[in-house]
């Protein structure tokens, strides 16, 4: 395996409830890079994101994933999170009775403990959270509300970005973070993500639309279809997709298949 890569996925196959969704994914991501994974509905984008995060019931049937040089699949969901892998959910979960501030504190303490850092004291913690909330335009009232309960779609997405910015992950995976956002909210979210860009960190943007990529410029774009990456390229690939739609890809896919048939 490549020593420089942060994440290396080889021949990944995964199924959910007995149904094969991922059918041989190869992908290498280095620190400092931003990758966009695009694809039509049911292409397996979200499944890939959740397999990386370690969702119970999403079963890897074949292949390997190395993260920071270690076997990712041998780690529990929480161990992955503590080692800096963060998934922003497409549908953030509502947690009755648990306030946002509890969740942030518990998550931050867990991550800091893993990094050998001291727990922040209450004042420093609140100061940090308030600063990040202000940057993301999140009302400080949401801090004491139950996690995502009664939040608008936009508030939920911003709340995910808030968690990300507080936890400072090494690998951030954003699953359709743009869905349901108006243009202003989209800019705020994109800005939150861009602030986090750094040479030590990689970001994976999972999206259906090219729109978000106008605000977060990816280094690489991959197109996923029926559980495989069928095309990879630079940011220009997203623009071609925007112009020609996913139909263009399936044509490419057909050509790809027939050509490989010829070779075979």
């Amino acid at each position: 395996m490549n020593q420089n890569s942060l994440l290396q996925i080889s021949n990944l196959h995964a199924e959910v409830e007995g149904q094969a969704i991922l059918k041989g994914i190869d992908l290498t991501i280095k620190a400092g890079e931003v990758h966009a994974i695009m694809g039509p509905n049911a292409s397996g984008k979200s499944t890939l994101a959740h397999v990386l995060a370690g969702r119970p019931g999403f079963e890897v049937t074949q292949g390997e994933i190395y993260y920071q040089g270690n076997d990712l699949l041998s780690l529990t969901t929480e161990e992955r999170a503590r080692k800096g892998l963060f998934l922003a959910f497409q549908y953030p979960v509502e947690i009755p009775g648990v306030s946002n501030v509890y969740l942030l504190k518990a998550a931050m303490n867990a991550v800091r403990k893993e990094r050998g850092q001291q727990e922040l004291d209450a004042m420093d913690f609140l100061e940090l959270i308030r600063m990040r909330m202000a940057e993301l335009g999140i009302s400080s009232e949401l801090l004491y509300r139950n996690v995502n309960e009664g939040f608008s779609g936009g508030e939920k997405k911003r709340n995910e970005i808030l968690q990300m910015s507080v936890l400072e992950p090494q690998l951030a995976i954003l699953d359709e973070i743009d869905s349901g956002l108006d243009i202003d909210a989209l800019k705020v979210v994109a800005n939150g993500v861009n602030t986090l860009r750094s040479s030590e960190r990689a970001i994976v943007i999972v999206t259906h639309y090219q729109r978000l990529l106008n605000y977060i410029k990816p280094d690489y774009v991959h197109v996923l279809s029926l559980g495989r990456i069928i095309k990879s390229g630079g940011p220009e690939l997203a623009e071609v997709l925007e112009e020609k739609g996913y139909g263009w890809i399936s044509q490419v896919d057909d050509i790809h298949h027939s050509s490989s048939g010829e070779i075979g």
Binding site: A81, R82, F89, I95, G97, L103, A110, E114, Q163, L167
Partner: peptide, 29 residues
């Protein structure tokens, strides 16, 4: 709720603590 449990764990909170947090919240009502 398994969804909530997964969400909490995905934020680095271990399974036992996540369960307890959910139970605490349920009872605290």
């Amino acid at each position: 709720d398994e969804e909530v449990l997964y969400y909490l764990r995905s934020r680095g909170i271990d399974e036992a603590t996540s369960r307890n947090l959910m139970l605490f919240a349920f009872a605290n009502h």
